[in-house]
Nucleic acid binder design. Structure first.
Length: 262
DNA sequence: ATGACTCAGGAACTGAGA
């Protein structure tokens, strides 16, 4: 079973890319972020036409997440628990099952947090605390689950081409990285890092200043596996070439293959 | 040295992104 995450930076602007990539990569489950539309504006028919079930948690103009799956999406919930006042659409999860093996797939779009001196940064750290609580709770069930999405976290200096450029940025500030480490230390596996020691594995390149052409990327899109999912990890990767397509998203798809018959 | 680009909303620009 292949499970992927991709921040598409507007699903309506990226529909052709999304369909092209789905046909090429053939993922079973896809977590989308920054769809930037309300539920009724999501182009669900285009995905249903190529065999995907669709669940959307949209928002006007900004944010928004969605799940695509060749398998039925069961037990769907929207919104990250822990803050009734959070109106931003940044979390959707569902369970997919294959041959008796169930995997809960949690699709998240973690807040950017910049500028750090504003209320945006505490909101980011609060979101990370809520995610930590969710993961700790889920781990007690000893079931396969995966946290997949745009975390807006550069975990280590190895995950940025130019780490010095990010030292004052909400994606790389010590409290951000500490919160990410605390999440990992619950017992989750960063799938890409578990399968490669290579430097220069990035998932985002800024549109500005020729960042793509100069390979000035950062790795901020992650797939974190529970122990029961990590036991089934076969491979993980980044579909970097998609960044070279015409009018691309600034993020590329990241995926894992788990040894679960789909 | 600085800015660099792309999106939504809504009709010229601003805010947001990272």
């Amino acid at each position: 079973m292949r499970i992927a995450t991709w921040n598409v930076n507007s699903i309506r602007q990226r529909l052709d890319h999304a369909v092209r990539w789905l046909k090429e990569a053939e993922p079973d489950v896809v977590c989308l972020q920054e769809i930037k539309c309300q539920d009724e504006a999501f182009p669900r028919e285009a995905f249903e036409a190529i065999g995907y079930n669709v669940e959307v948690h949209g928002q006007k103009g900004f944010n928004g997440v969605a799940l695509l799956s060749k398998l039925p999406l069961e037990d769907v919930t929207r919104g990250l628990p822990g803050d009734e006042g959070d109106v931003q659409s940044r979390f959707i999860e569902a369970v997919v099952s294959a041959k008796g093996m169930a995997v809960r797939v949690c699709c998240l779009y973690l807040p950017n947090g910049n500028p750090p001196e504003t209320e945006k940064y505490p909101y980011k750290l609060g979101f990370m605390r809520r995610l930590h609580a969710l993961a700790a709770n889920r781990l007690q069930n000893e079931e396969a689950f995966i946290l997949a999405g745009d975390f807006n976290v550069i975990p280590t200096t190895d995950d940025a081409a130019d780490p010095a450029a990010w030292v004052h940025d909400a994606l790389f500030l010590p409290p951000t990285r500490t919160a990410f480490r605390d999440l990992i230390h619950l017992g989750l596996t960063d799938a890409v890092r578990a399968t490669t020691d290579s430097a220069k594995v990035y998932s985002f390149w800024d549109y500005q200043a020729g960042a793509w052409q100069r390979d000035l990327g950062i790795r901020i899109d992650h797939l974190l596996l529970s122990p029961q999912a990590a036991d089934r990890l076969i491979a993980a990767g980044v579909d970097k070439h998609v960044r070279g397509w015409e009018k691309p998203s600034d993020h590329v798809p990241v995926w894992v293959d788990l040894s679960i018959a789909a």
